[in-house]
């Protein structure tokens, strides 16, 4: 079963279009949605959550079409959401939010929530407006994780946070996915965070899905070749996904299977793959 299924999804705004996006996130998997600022990640998440209407195509989440308002409102009970700025009324505190969420989610577990507040060192009575960004994101995560969600949707949860808080958040997400029926969609432009966590990587660039692949397969399929111009000329054109020319030679992201094994190749990082795909050829 797929946790999320997106088919031929398009959405147009004046000056920006998301076009023809298709992918499926199998249940129990973590998918990282990568893309530069303005690539369309938040728009795609809004479409997946039924907060915005697509121009064409369809989205099915936990086996329900998001355009089916009544059915999908119920499905949202099984989804935990964390948006980039937490978006809680700033005059409220963590205790208020706990009570509100208790009336919102049918399987809200106050003990789990209290446990997260304690673990994440979040004060119960301090107003959200007095929280740092890191604290707000942790509070949002506590709310999203305390109702036994089957799917977690996170939009830039680690953006602008210090490495310690980011690590703490990633640890919690790893714990969440230990149960096999739980899935996560996480968007970020911090590729290293996703490299640690994800099973699938989707790369969105200027509203288009350039890449959707299992992370491990992606790492096996592509390689970084540090070569000369002459060696580059010997590689079939379709094997070269991106080139960076420097003083000391050429760096190329290549499709491993299409390249002569005699050419020296290294395992790429996810960041290499993303950057080279985005830029194509760069001098």
């Amino acid at each position: 079963m797929n946790a999320i299924e997106v088919r031929a999804l398009s959405k147009s705004y004046p000056g920006f279009t998301i076009s023809n996006i298709s992918f499926s996130l199998p249940e129990g998997c973590i998918m990282g949605l990568v893309g530069e600022n303005g690539a369309g990640k938040s728009t795609l998440i809004r479409l997946i959550m039924g907060a915005s209407r697509a121009s064409s195509g369809f989205v099915r989440v936990l086996n329900t079409e998001v355009t089916d308002d009544k059915a999908f409102t119920k499905v949202r009970d099984d989804i935990g959401v964390v948006l980039d700025e937490a978006h809680f009324p700033t005059s409220l505190n963590a205790r208020h939010l706990g009570r509100i969420m208790a009336g919102t989610y049918s399987r809200w577990d106050q003990a789990v929530y209290d446990g997260y507040l304690k673990r994440l060192d979040l004060p119960e009575k301090k107003r959200v407006q007095d929280f740092s960004r890191g604290m707000r994101m942790k509070l949002a995560l506590a709310c999203a994780l305390s109702h036994d969600a089957k799917l977690l949707v996170l939009d830039e949860p680690t953006g602008g946070l210090d490495p310690l808080v980011r690590d703490e958040i990633l640890d919690i997400l790893e714990e969440f996915t230990r149960r096999e029926d739980r899935s996560v969609l996480i968007s970020s432009h911090i590729v290293s965070d996703l490299e640690k966590l994800c099973d699938y990587i989707a790369f969105l660039h200027k509203g288009e899905l350039l890449l959707f692949e299992e992370k491990d397969r992606l790492m096996e399929e592509y390689a970084m070749a540090h070569i000369t111009e002459a060696e580059l000329a010997d590689i079939p054109e379709e094997a070269v996904k991106g080139v960076r020319r420097g003083k000391y030679g050429v760096e190329a992201l290549v499709e491993r299977q299409l390249v002569n094994p005699g050419i020296p190749m290294e395992k790429p990082t996810l960041e290499d793959i993303i950057v080279f795909f985005a830029k194509g050829v760069r001098e």
Partner: peptide, 10 residues
């Protein structure tokens, strides 16, 4: 921006 979040809650 609670209204943006509320759209994604049940």
């Amino acid at each position: 921006q609670w209204d943006s979040l509320a759209l994604m809650l049940p």
